[in-house]
């Protein structure tokens, strides 16, 4: 299983990378939305993308819109992981094409429960 983790915070990439690694995911990192798109072109379709909302150059919402515009990535599983917690923002992310939404802070268990919902939980 492979996950693409997109976050401008090195600390957050490290936390998510560690959790996903423990869940036996191979982790590929990117530092913003544009970088994430490049990574997708390099590695092809991962099993899961975890993407932050607020990032320089290209934010998570624009990343999701760009990904969904490509037919090859229509069914890519994307979970937004963000400090944005208003109802309107959750709705906006879903409308843009996010498959799931996780509000920071979270724990490893929260991630596992979300992966179970998404059908990409480790065996």
């Amino acid at each position: 299983m492979r996950a693409l983790v997109i976050d401008d915070s090195r600390a957050m990439r490290s936390i998510l990378g560690k959790i996903m690694g423990e869940l036996r995911y191979e982790v590929v990192e990117a530092v913003n939305g544009r970088h994430g798109l490049e990574r997708l072109r390099e590695i092809g379709k991962p099993d899961l993308v975890l993407v932050d909302w607020n990032m320089p150059e290209m934010n998570g919402l624009d990343f999701i819109r760009a990904v969904r515009a490509d037919r090859a990535f229509q069914d890519l599983v994307i979970m937004m992981v963000t400090t944005e917690t208003e109802m309107a923002q959750v709705a906006k992310a879903l409308e843009a094409g996010a498959t799931e939404y996780l509000m920071k802070p979270f724990t490893k268990d929260t991630i596992i429960e979300k992966l179970a919902l998404l059908g990409v939980a480790p065996a």
Binding site: E86, M87, V90, L94, P105, T110, E113, K114, L117
Partner: peptide
């Protein structure tokens, strides 16, 4: 709380059945 709705509930259901 936010921590509680993060657990096990899909964002789609959160938007549909909850008010903030």
């Amino acid at each position: 709380s936010q921590v509680e709705v993060n657990r096990g509930l899909s964002a789609r259901l959160l938007v549909k059945f909850f008010d903030k």
